[in-house]
Design a protein around this nucleic acid. Structure first.
Lengths: 358, 358
DNA sequence: TGACGGGGATGAAAGGTTTCAAGAGCGTCC
DNA sequence: GGACGCTCTTGAAACCTTTCATCCCCGTCA
């Protein structure tokens, strides 16, 4: 009993796991430079407190060993991440990439990096990304939500991850939000069409789970009401997504209607839809704007360059992103941060697709 | 000396740091569920080995405490990340977001998530993101590099982060790459213009640090050589970036030339340039294609919907992304992975901007 | 000459998870 | 009735960094 049985453990090798090809850590660097572990850390984080000579030695050691700081360990110990994420609805929509540009700008100014994610208008994917980002303990999340009532979204801030909602307003005390008045945007579009004398107007957009789609339609209805027109003048064409392809599909449906029942104008929930609609209608022989006037939304760069330059409702895209990022930064650094609901005003840009050539 | 001076340390509180608002960890969950730490971990990672009863208890505890797994700690210990990154040249270019879509697709199929980053054609930013991603120990990096000779890029694989180059070929034994033959693409474009009888042709693109710009020009030159034309027939308009705005600038310059010296056709290094060029030229009164034929590159979705539908060189965008991601996955999971250089063949899509209306 | 002060370097502790050898509990079989 | 095998659970070690109270060394001042 008291004597170790030599036979029992013949090959009891204590190797836990084969490590990755020599990943040099601070320990190795310290050894190579002949200093202590803490000094290496100081070189990394507070270079000014270490003497130039020592610093040089350490830096040389790092270079020769190909040292790469392990961010997971850093973050675990230090507790903070230098990353901020923007979870977009659709990376293929230039509107969102322009917003992202504004986000990057503000983040860079603050020394942070941005990771972009895209939910592709899929609620499950959005949820998965939110979980992932929370687990990663990013400094904060900017999101254009598809599912604004997601419990996940509401719980995040209380657990310590600040969230700013972009291009949407949430009636919720937990988040900041930065948005453009979509109802007003819808009104602008429809008022414009009414002024031009259109009576039967199509509203092209969907799915109805997306807040922007709903609000812009609501604005359209208000404009009709204000003008004393019946709501039945607004013919709804529901699409499955806000893409060029869906726009083409809607164009197909529209053009297929008998001329006396076909709307004389269409207001699309975004420019991608409008561009697809425009393209399909033109190729099916409809004249724009004579047979069908079209108004888009977002005023993306390509709207102006379209076959028929597109009338569109413009939003301050980069400003939207920049403001959102700034709010997020404030929330995560300023102890007496107060949640804000910033709303910008959209602007109608009239072009040939409604006005015709001058 | 031996007696502690009671006055000296009146308030020597031992609080190390105020922790974030109660972040519940596995430890807390274990306590709440009345099980051990290891069991909680098993519920998280190998739910099948824990009895249904225990599992339920643990899951209930997690829910009631709002437990969020700390990914930094997980990754630190487990050594692996479930994330893959795509570092793009320009998120505002639909070509890259389409590639990204292919990447997402393949990643999702393998249960991984994708973080998108954008270098915005800025070498410093590219370098910063590469450093960051390496420190994060992402599972792998997909990149469309701006600086293909970056030492960073070459060192990454040897330090354990697999890298696949997208839309570029590197003459380098360290990476996989997936590209489209840009030289051939350039040849296709110019041959087409030569067949249509054009003699003076502009090449619009830049900066020359970007590989695609150089290769496509090289293809253009080859086509001229093949046709026995002097290289001086190719007039170079160098741009500062591959954007719509730069395209407009080039259009301004082009339209400003006296008609007898002005090229009769322009080949643009990508569609954004082409769209900007088109727009500017049309607005300055040039007719396309009668006064100026235009060929773009990438065949993005908006090329077809342009004022004058754009002739363009099409690349298999999503396939590019999907293939690249699959190579990356193979590299990081298959021990006898071999680096590959996949090359796809581009295709010329002829539209009105060169052919005119039929 | 001895106390003091200050710039630098040190090293143990902590952070939250995963891993894995070992232990506990229990039914079965000889 | 005791040994065995099985399933499930346990707890300590390890991952790599940052932090911070100490310590060391030297020059300065009284």
């Amino acid at each position: 009993m008291s004597v170790d049985d030599a036979e029992a453990l013949p090959e009891r090798v204590r190797r836990r796991r084969a490590p990755k090809p020599h990943a040099a850590g601070v320990k190795a660097v310290a050894a190579a430079a002949g200093v202590s572990l803490g000094t290496v850390s100081n070189v990394l984080n507070r270079p000014e407190v270490v003497s130039p000579l020592t610093r040089a030695k350490v830096e040389a050691a790092m270079a020769s060993l190909g040292f790469v700081r392990n961010e997971s360990a850093r973050q675990l110990r230090a507790g903070s991440s230098r990353i901020l994420a923007y979870l977009m609805l659709d990376a293929g929509n230039p509107f969102f990439t322009d917003v992202a540009k504004g986000v990057e700008e503000a983040a860079q100014a603050a020394g942070l990096s941005v990771f972009l994610c895209t939910s592709s208008e899929d609620a499950d994917r959005e949820a998965a990304y939110l979980d992932l980002l929370e687990q990663q303990r990013v400094q904060g999340i900017l999101i254009t939500p598809i599912d604004q009532n997601s419990s996940r979204l509401r719980k995040l801030p209380s657990r310590g991850t600040p969230v700013v909602v972009v291009d949407r307003t949430l009636d919720d005390a937990e988040h900041c939000s930065v948005a453009v008045n979509d109802i007003l945007g819808g009104e602008l579009a429809i008022s414009h069409l009414l002024e031009l004398g259109h009576e039967r107007i199509a509203y092209v957009g969907g799915p109805n789970t997306i807040g922007q789609v709903v609000d812009r339609r609501e604005g359209a209805r208000r404009a009709l009401r204000t003008a004393g027109k019946p709501l039945s003048n607004l013919i709804e064409l529901t699409t499955g997504a806000l893409t060029v392809a869906e726009g083409r599909g809607a164009g197909q449906r529209l053009a297929g209607l008998p001329a006396d029942r076909r709307p004389t104008a269409a207001f699309c929930a975004n420019d991608l839809l409008a561009l697809g609609l425009l393209q399909q209608c033109v190729s099916l022989g409809l004249r724009v704007p004579e047979d069908l006037a079209i108004v888009g939304y977002d005023d993306i760069e390509f709207a102006e360059a379209a076959a028929v330059p597109l009338t569109s409702v413009r939003q301050p895209r980069q400003l939207l992103g920049r403001t959102a990022a700034e709010l997020l930064l404030d929330e995560s650094s300023n102890p007496d941060h107060e949640h804000q609901r910033v709303t910008f005003t959209p602007e109608l840009v009239v072009r040939t697709s409604t006005r015709g050539t001058l």
